[in-house]
Design a protein around this nucleic acid. Structure first.
Lengths: 125, 125
DNA sequence: TTAGATAGTTTCCAATAGATACCAAGGAGA
DNA sequence: TCTCCTTGGTATCTATTGGAAACTATCTAA
């Protein structure tokens, strides 16, 4: 580990890594990154695919991901205008990890719901 | 892919995997899971280690993780009382993925801040 | 001219997050 | 005995965020 790497610690307040984690640890951001994995997608296409996301939150989250260099935004002057979102090379380095998380959720859902039922029964008094 | 696995899709609203992702995609939950990786830790110990977390949010997040079967809560009748939190076997299956995320954040922080500066300069008008 | 598509912004209300103060039980020091 | 310290939390208040719905603007097709 180099001196530079050692200087950062997610457990430290004020550490910049926290700011990064703030932006990644967001349900919608993870779903969007996962959705863009297979190639560029348009705004309303994402909106239709990720069921339940509002236009406001989708726009905000896309802007956030763009500002952090994880996705790119390309405007095509068609009629009506087309805006395409795609992963940047930096964003692509994240997708494996993100996919691992969403896959873990899909795979271990049963165990989690069983745990919830057990917990709720135990503390139902 | 089996029929059961195929039935779940994180992009679907109302899909139970979404509920799981809601609970995982949380900055504090990720930090706590990462902190517990090396062994059981007490409440105030976590609170001191994860700088900036409030008691309320720590208590809430621990309760949430416990309900979802990711961590266990053990009370020792010492004086004053000692409460130890530890990863369950299920929680342990998650830590590799979580560590990958926090490590990615530490490693790519520089690139992200550079992207932010570039974005803010480009849209500063 | 009415409806639909594009990609958003605006507005409002409810839910959440964070800061702060407070609680009980007991031990140590003055 | 009085006060401060520890343990692991709640209770309260406010600020921020999230979601639902309506609105913008431009152009096409029926």
């Amino acid at each position: 580990m180099t001196a530079i790497e050692q200087a950062y610690d997610v457990f430290e307040d004020r550490c910049p890594t926290r700011l990064v984690l703030d932006r990644l640890a967001d349900k919608w951001a993870l779903l969007i990154l996962d959705r863009l994995k297979s190639g560029p997608v348009r705004f309303n296409h994402i909106r239709r695919d990720i069921k339940g996301i509002s236009q406001k939150v989708l726009a905000q989250t896309l802007r956030k991901l763009e500002r952090n260099g994880l996705i790119s935004r390309t405007i095509f002057p068609t009629v009506p205008v087309t805006v395409e979102y795609a992963l940047t090379p930096l964003g692509r380095t994240l997708t494996d990890t993100v996919s691992a998380l969403t896959h873990w959720a899909e795979k271990n859902m049963g165990a989690i719901f069983a745990a919830q039922r057990a917990y709720d029964e135990a503390y139902a008094d």
